[in-house]
Design a protein around this nucleic acid. Structure first.
Lengths: 114, 114
DNA sequence: ACAAGTATGCACCTTTTGGTTAGTACCTCC
DNA sequence: GGAGGTACTAACCAAAAGGTGCATACTTGT
């Protein structure tokens, strides 16, 4: 029984591979908010309600290392840094749209079943 | 400024709501494997490579409480229990398909950028 | 002059997540 | 008759995720 290419790479399936990139509590939300437009660090933080500085920086760094987010440091003082999706990141963020819509449609039920 | 219905319910956005249901390391994979067909506990465990009994039971219970997975205990000895997606679960699993395809297309890159 | 905003890094701590082992009660296969 | 499969649960422990507060170095607004 030949192993599939996916399994040779150490993934269970394509979904498992994708979760390596967007897994975690904050990454999908970050991608989602950058999807509408690129944002400064502070703007992003205000969008992703409840995230701490530490988490936001860390997750952005992860996303950058996977090539889905690009960081532009304007080297100004006070600091000014922009975050944007790369084309790859944009294609990934698009796949989250159906999930987002599902959440909107069923949010009442989700809220009631703790 | 009026708060949106989503925010009244305590969610940042629809995506945030959906993540309450499918958040975590294993839940998306469980849904994905149940999408093709309903499975017995042991079958599912063999599909979701690497999951422990504890995690699989726990996550299945969570998914059941959110109404996306249904559990059928045949009350036999030795035990026989089937897990299947509910219609709601099926609609959720469908939203994961694009993500799965994205993962397949980009798995080489994902594997290389640790 | 002083507070607040700016984008982080660091150290410390708590919470959540996840793994391991053992146990159940019965069956089938060798 | 002992091993292994079946679908779990509970207790215990380790690891990862996540939160808080402090520090930076300079600007703008009060």
């Amino acid at each position: 029984m030949a192993e599939s290419r996916t399994q040779q790479l150490g993934f269970i399936c394509g979904l498992d591979a994708a979760l390596r990139v967007v897994g975690g509590k904050w990454k999908p939300l970050i991608l989602h908010f950058l999807y509408s437009e690129s944002k400064r660090y502070g703007e992003l933080k205000r969008c992703v309600t409840g995230v701490s500085d530490k988490m936001l920086s860390q997750q952005l760094k992860d996303l950058e290392s996977h090539g889905v987010v690009s960081r532009t440091d304007h080297n100004e003082i006070p600091p000014r840094v922009d975050y944007a999706l790369t084309p790859l990141g944009r294609s990934l963020a698009e796949t989250l749209v159906p999930l987002c819509e599902w959440g909107e449609q069923h949010q009442e039920m989700i809220a009631s079943s703790v």
